[in-house]
Design a protein around this nucleic acid. Structure first.
Lengths: 166, 166
DNA sequence: TATTGTTATACTCTATAACTATA
DNA sequence: TATAGTTATAGAGTATAACAATA
């Protein structure tokens, strides 16, 4: 996780803007899975561009939120919560630790695991990310119309929940 | 693009299913960007699992669609259409060529570029993918309610278009 | 024996930069 | 000089498997 560039972010923004030939993708317009990917990429790129300026690491967001909401969580549960393998957490948590955003303490009851919690700096950092997330969400609201927000969120949650269930 | 496994696909499905501790991610529920990612991942995983069984390469789908709709397209335009750098196309197109799905012929008018088109096999392959995409879309429709499909698609396209524009 | 977390390793996807050949 | 496509290289993100410590 070296922080030099956020390659996918800006570049995706640039490229997407300048379509040279009009509508080469007409027949993908109706493919839900494809539009889902486009929207996700665009949303991520925009969010990354926003927080990138502030020198904040967007990939940490979900991690910080879950830790904040579940202080003392261990890595196994954390990895399940964010849907990634536990092995991928090691590096991220080390970075978060180095940045002074989280604290790991041995679980006295079970010496195999750690209890992870945000430090004060971690809470401030999260607050800053929330601020940007908020601004980003408002931008998305303006695009889709804020009354549609609830519907869209519900549909997305339904999709994720139902497709995963089995 | 060695075809041995489709790691993200099945594994994501498995993991997402068995949440051990309930709702560790409550406060991410309202974060549109996050739910967008979850839905996209789940959708991709489900589609990959479906076509994976049939030995079909889901990453090729968008490429094949665009080529089919724009026979004779060159790599520069193709790369813009799918939103990837031209350098990433080289390998994919080589695979598609090896698989006998596309044909590259020199553009006589401009010897630097190629004209890319689907072969008959490519068209059959695309038809098979479309079949699976169709089934997948129907499954998504059942989840969100088919009347909501149009709305969702519109919102996703709006998001992608507006966020990229600038 | 089973589980938590780490390490070693590998694979996918994508990008940038330098290059070749044409224009 | 500029453009189309290729190659070399790198990095982010993720996974699996083997391992050490602990249960």
């Amino acid at each position: 996780m070296s922080r030099k560039r956020a390659p996918t972010a800006e570049t995706a923004l640039e490229m997407a803007g300048s379509g040279p030939s009009e509508r080469l993708t007409r027949n993908l317009d109706e493919v839900l899975a494809y539009q889902l990917r486009r929207a996700q990429e665009a949303s991520f790129a925009a969010f990354a561009a926003r927080v990138g300026e502030a020198g904040i690491w967007p990939g940490w967001y979900a991690l910080l939120v879950v830790i904040n909401d579940n202080p003392g969580i261990n890595q196994r549960d954390l990895s399940h919560a964010v849907g990634r393998d536990k092995s991928t957490l090691t590096a991220s948590l080390r970075e978060l630790g180095k940045a002074g955003l989280i604290e790991k303490t041995r679980d006295e009851a079970d010496q195999r695991s750690f209890r992870i919690a945000l430090t004060a700096a971690g809470q401030r950092h999260l607050a800053e990310l929330e601020f940007h997330a908020d601004a980003h969400n408002k931008r998305l609201d303006r695009i889709i119309g804020s009354r549609n927000r609830t519907i869209l969120l519900q549909m997305l949650r339904d999709l994720a929940d139902n497709l995963s269930a089995e």
